Computed example of a mutant assay.
Amino acid sequence: MKKILVILLLTLVYVGASAQKTGANLFSAAWDVSFPTNNDFLTKTSLAGFRFDYKKFLTDNLSVGATLSWNSYEQYIARQTYEKDRTAVTTDMERTIYNVPMALTAHYYFKGPKTIRPFAGLGIGAQYSDQTIYYNIYQTDVDNWGFLLKPEIGAYYPLGTRGAAIVLGGSYAWATNKNDAFRINSLTNFSVHLGFAWAGGW
Rank of each mutant, 00 (worst) to 15 (best):
K2E: 07
L5S: 03
L8G: 04
L10Y: 10
V13W: 14
V15N: 15
S18P: 02
A19H: 11
Q20R: 15
G23P: 09
A24E: 12
A24F: 09
N25I: 00
N25D: 09
F27P: 10
F27L: 14
A29D: 07
D32R: 14
V33H: 07
F35H: 04
P36H: 01
T37A: 00
T37W: 02
D40Q: 07
D40W: 07
D40F: 06
T43S: 10
T45N: 07
G49M: 04
R51L: 03
R51E: 01
F52E: 02
K55D: 15
K55I: 02
K56Q: 14
N61F: 13
N61S: 13
N61G: 10
S63C: 10
V64W: 07
V64I: 13
G65T: 07
A66H: 01
A66I: 02
T67S: 15
W70D: 01
W70Y: 15
Y76N: 03
A78T: 08
A78Y: 14
Q80F: 13
T81F: 10
Y82G: 11
Y82E: 11
E83D: 14
K84H: 13
D85T: 14
R86I: 03
V89K: 14
V89Y: 15
T90Y: 09
T90G: 12
T91Q: 13
D92C: 06
M93Y: 02
E94R: 06
R95M: 06
R95L: 00
T96S: 11
Y98R: 06
N99V: 02
V100Q: 02
T105C: 09
Y108M: 08
Y109V: 04
F110T: 07
K111V: 08
K114S: 14
T115P: 01
I116A: 10
P118A: 11
A120L: 11
G121W: 13
L122I: 14
I124G: 03
G125S: 01
G125H: 00
Y128L: 01
Y128T: 03
Y128C: 05
I133R: 08
Y135S: 10
N136Q: 15
Y138C: 09
Q139K: 15
D141N: 02
W145H: 04
G146Y: 06
F147H: 03
L149Y: 07
L149M: 09
L149V: 09
P151W: 06
P151N: 04
E152G: 08
E152A: 11
G154A: 02
P158L: 05
L159P: 01
G160C: 04
G160R: 03
R162T: 14
G163F: 06
A164P: 06
A164Q: 13
A164F: 15
A165I: 09
I166F: 02
I166Y: 02
L168T: 14
L168S: 13
G170Y: 03
N177G: 03
K178F: 03
D180K: 08
A181C: 10
F182P: 00
I184F: 06
S186M: 02
S186E: 07
L187N: 08
L187S: 06
T188R: 05
N189I: 01
V192F: 08
G195H: 07
F196C: 12
F196R: 11
F196S: 10
W198Y: 15
G200C: 13
